[in-house]
């Protein structure tokens, strides 16, 4: 059979012996970068579907909450409510999109892979510690989250028009916060993805994602909750709260409202920077460590 002819390249063990022995650290680094490249290649090939997946939800949020509802509110009273709401909504949408894009980038593939597809086996059998496979998932998902959050800006500019107002004097802080939000989403995603079984996926959306979205201070600012104290405290357990508030802090310009006494300028209060970074930092470290632990338990028995 011609098919059985051996080609020199496909020859047994000879090249193995010829290859230079490499240190474990070097092998692991090479494997890690190749696995990361695999994820980038796969996502880049399906970049348009990826963008659609990321953008459709925020597009409607921005249009309805940032354009339609403020117009309805303003038509009666001509107050500054609509404008104010849009200004505090946009950072919330950026945070939410970045967080959930990162989270889903880890959770869904992991649930399926660890559940039955086992497509991850090839990477687990690569010469690197299995924990690094989880680390790669987090790194790549965070990259997805950063891209997801970033593409909201031009989208919002197109939809909101004049109501698009973003501070330009805190760009480094803004970028730093966005990175942390994406990392928080990715680490939370790692923990969820290693805990949820495939048959529980529908529960995942109902019981985990929905509460996460609505208690994350995305559609309201934290200080605005002062009249519902218990709920204000609940939101502090959601890492997304710190992300939304953080982006608010570095995105919202002072707002000018026309009053009978003339134009007045004010800033919407947010959580303090140290609480924002502490909240995000604790969430990232905690969920990363828990996720790594559960990941190891799922792949090595």
């Amino acid at each position: 059979m011609a098919m059985l002819d051996v080609t020199p390249q496909a020859n047994g063990t000879a090249p193995q012996a010829a290859r230079k022995p490499r240190s474990h650290a070097r092998m692991a680094w090479t494997a890690f970068m190749a696995i990361l490249r695999r994820d980038i290649v796969v996502t880049a090939r399906d970049f348009i579907p990826f963008l659609l997946q990321v953008l459709v939800q925020p597009l409607f949020f921005l249009f309805i909450f940032g354009k339609v509802l403020p117009n309805l509110a303003n038509s009666g009273t001509s107050s500054g409510f609509g404008n104010t709401f849009t200004v505090l909504l946009l950072p919330g949408i950026v945070a939410l999109t970045s967080f959930t894009t990162a989270l889903q980038g880890v959770t869904l593939p992991l649930v399926l892979d660890l559940g039955f597809a086992r497509e991850i086996d090839d990477r687990l059998q690569s010469p690197l510690p299995v924990s690094l496979v989880a680390v790669e998932k987090v790194v790549f998902a965070a990259m997805r989250g950063i891209i997801g959050g970033t593409v909201i800006f031009p989208l919002a500019y197109l939809i909101l028009g004049n109501s698009f107002q973003v501070r330009t004097d805190a760009i480094p802080q803004l970028i730093g916060t966005l990175v942390l939000v994406a990392m928080a989403g990715a680490t939370v995603g790692l923990t969820i993805g290693t805990l949820v079984k495939p048959e529980q996926i529908s529960l995942l959306f109902a019981l985990i994602l929905t509460p996460l979205l609505f208690t994350g201070c995305t559609y309201y600012n934290w200080s605005g909750l002062s009249s519902i104290k218990w709920f204000q405290i609940v939101t502090l357990f959601n890492p997304l709260t710190y992300g939304s508030e953080g982006l608010r802090k570095f995105m919202m310009p002072p707002i000018t409202v026309t009053t009978p006494a003339g134009p007045q300028s004010f800033t919407i209060p947010t959580l303090d920077a140290q609480w924002i970074f502490l909240g995000l930092g604790v969430a990232i470290v905690a969920f990363f460590l828990i996720g790594l632990q559960t990941f190891r338990r799922r792949v090595v028995s």
Partner: peptide, 8 residues
């Protein structure tokens, strides 16, 4: 090719 890349 990716499998081989993982293995350096």
């Amino acid at each position: 090719t990716f499998h081989a890349a993982y293995h350096g």
